[in-house]
């Protein structure tokens, strides 16, 4: 399946990425060639085949409901770009 420049821009925005205008055509062509590569799957009949999520078909283990984490705010915020009063700062959130 091919994707055009506007399609690539739309998907990029969904992924919160920007693509320079002068690179959009090239990106669209590259992405299209990748999609063409993966489209070879479509010829395969997979009717009734259960998707494989874990190669050993393992199941989820459950954790006891016990508090194991102490406050580590100082440490965990050590790499945060903008913090004030223990809060992560972002441009104003408008609802």
């Amino acid at each position: 399946m091919a994707i055009d420049a506007s399609g690539v821009k739309k998907v990029a925005k969904l992924a919160r990425l920007s693509i320079d205008d002068d690179a959009v055509e090239v990106t669209a062509a590259t992405i299209s060639s990748i999609l063409e590569l993966v489209d070879s799957m479509q010829a395969v009949d997979t009717l009734g085949v259960e998707p494989l999520a874990h190669p050993l078909d393992a199941i989820q283990r459950l954790r006891p409901d016990q508090v194991t984490e102490e406050n580590q705010r100082e440490q965990l915020q050590g790499c945060a770009p903008a913090v004030e009063e223990g809060l992560f700062l972002v441009p104003r959130v408008i609802e």
Partner: peptide, 13 residues
């Protein structure tokens, strides 16, 4: 998101 004024920013808890 806390919208008290942090220099025009929001604070995330």
């Amino acid at each position: 998101s806390l919208h008290e004024d942090f220099h025009g920013m929001s604070g995330i808890d």
